[in-house]
């Protein structure tokens, strides 16, 4: 279980994340939803132990999150600069050398599922294929927590669909929790158990998708539009 209390991150004087409480249970799929600049990515980096909170705390199964938590948290960056000097097969070797929980066979299965070949160089990949390659090596880790930062952002509908299907096919939902940030809710809604709405660095709401649909007879996007106005 990941727990954050009053999580706050300041960059100079600006609060990117402002007093957020989170309680993330094993085996569930969470979507962190918010506009660009709402603080989603900062939250992910804090949870992954890549940034240190200015205030508040985060714990993973009761232990404080640090850079060492990377052994239990697989983080996929939204950066488009991703090991440009590697070929895909070298990226697989590198991940294999860095992470004990990396499953090589699974990595190649995912790459095949996403129609990528190992001899392609990362710097020569299209944006869509780079997104697929990042997903493949991240999901090939058998870590209890998978954090995917904007896995669908700026990709065309076919690539988005193949990424969503890759996630459903290869994430082991009995043993792994998934956290996804996105501003494109429509594509990921059927994938999510719960949505966490972030607005200007604060948590606006946390709701199960089924509850929103049952209680309000709206999909998440329409519900948000109705509430955020």
């Amino acid at each position: 279980m990941i727990e954050a209390r009053q999580l706050t991150k300041r960059f100079w004087k600006k609060k990117a994340v402002d007093g957020i409480d989170l309680h993330l249970e094993p085996g569930r799929i969470y979507g962190i939803i918010g506009e660009n600049g709402s603080g989603k990515s900062t939250i992910m980096k804090l949870l992954a132990g890549l940034l240190h909170p200015s205030n508040g705390s985060i714990s993973l199964n009761g232990e404080p999150v640090t850079r060492k938590s990377a052994s239990q948290i697989a983080f996929m960056t939204d950066s488009t600069r991703f090991f440009p000097y590697f070929k895909i097969k070298e990226l697989v070797d590198f991940y294999d050398s860095q992470f004990e929980d990396f499953n090589r066979e699974k990595a190649w299965d995912i790459l095949a599922f996403l129609s990528l070949d190992g001899d392609q160089k990362l710097s020569h990949l299209s944006k869509g294929n780079l997104g697929r390659a990042k997903l493949a090596v991240t999901v090939a880790r058998e870590a209890p927590y998978l954090l995917l930062d904007e896995p669908l952002s700026g990709l065309d509908p076919m690539v988005r669909e193949s990424i969503v299907k890759g996630i459903i096919q290869f994430v082991d939902f009995e043993h792994q929790s998934l956290l996804i940030t996105t501003h494109e809710i429509r594509d990921v809604e059927p994938l999510l158990d719960e949505v966490i709405i972030i607005h200007q660095g604060k948590k606006y709401a946390q709701q199960s998708v089924d509850n929103i649909r049952t209680n309000h007879h709206l999909d998440v996007e329409s519900w948000l539009k109705q509430n955020m106005q």
């Binding site: 969503v164 594509d187 059927p190 649909r213 049952t214 999909d219």
Partner: peptide, 13 residues
């Protein structure tokens, strides 16, 4: 995606 879901009912339903 796979199926177009209606917005007014839970997906499992």
């Amino acid at each position: 995606m796979g199926i177009d879901f209606q917005p007014d009912k839970p997906i499992y339903q």
